[in-house]
């Protein structure tokens, strides 16, 4: 019954990734992924809320009755989001101003309520927190991948304004990848988010398919004719 930590890791980062497979939390995913720093900032904030809410939900899972389960979960998530919002306001004020409405909107991010319901309400604190971490990490990775791709295509640069998140040591992290680049504006504009997300999903499916075929072909080599005999329908060639 209890999923192993290895399964939780694989699920969060790849097999059941919230951004690429569950397609949950698309609003912030599309809205804040126009640069690496925005994506990373919101990804970390979401991951923090997710870890804390999973832990809290798991902690109280035996105390709450079914009737008030959902209101309690929502209250916990909203409170945690408000705390994260206040903390971001205090420590990364400029980033807070850029991300704006998307931080309070973490409350409505379906990944968080989804994990609370589907996982944290049924599993131990350790597993739930770890699931929050892995789901949050998976979400952040996808968000950053989209953010970096859009920033690179749109401006020809990477890691602009990272000091908003990391302070003055990140002042000079900006990398100019393409000199004299025209700037593919579409990537920065909202349609770019959909296009890049679509391409990432395609890439993931392609990798999955490639591995499936690869494994199938090696399996065929190692397990000879026996498998053909078992087949009762279709044509054996």
């Amino acid at each position: 019954m209890n999923p192993s930590f290895r399964d939780i890791t694989i699920n969060g980062l790849w097999k059941n990734n919230p951004g690429l497979v569950q397609l949950l939390g698309l609003c912030p995913l599309l809205g804040t992924s126009n640069s690496t720093v925005n994506a990373l900032g919101l990804g970390i904030a979401t991951a923090l809320v997710l870890i804390c809410s999973n832990a809290a939900v798991s902690l109280i899972r035996n105390a709450v009755t079914n009737a008030v389960r959902l209101p309690v979960f929502v209250m916990i998530i909203a409170a945690l989001t408000t705390c994260i919002e206040l903390l971001m306001q205090a420590f990364t004020y400029e980033l807070f101003q850029i991300l704006g409405i998307f931080i309070p909107l973490i409350t409505t991010n379906c990944v968080i309520l989804g994990r609370a319901e589907a996982f944290a309400a049924k599993n131990s604190i350790a597993r739930s927190s770890y699931d929050g971490l892995m789901m949050g990490l998976g979400f952040t990775l996808v968000l950053v991948a989209i953010g970096a791709t859009r920033e690179l295509l749109g401006t020809g640069m990477l890691f602009t304004n990272m000091h908003l998140l990391f302070g003055s040591i990140a002042e000079h992290w900006q990398v100019v990848v393409f000199e004299d680049y025209k700037g593919f504006l579409l990537a920065i504009l909202p349609p770019g988010a959909f296009l890049v997300l679509g391409l990432l999903i395609a890439l993931k499916n392609w990798i999955d398919q490639y591995y499936a075929e690869h494994i199938a072909s090696t399996a065929e080599v190692t397990a000879p004719a026996v498998s053909r005999r078992v087949r009762v329908t279709g044509v054996v060639d």
Partner: peptide
């Protein structure tokens, strides 16, 4: 139960 959780979250 709900009131208790409301109080706790508000406190946080």
């Amino acid at each position: 139960l709900l009131a208790l959780f409301a109080a706790v979250t508000v406190a946080v």
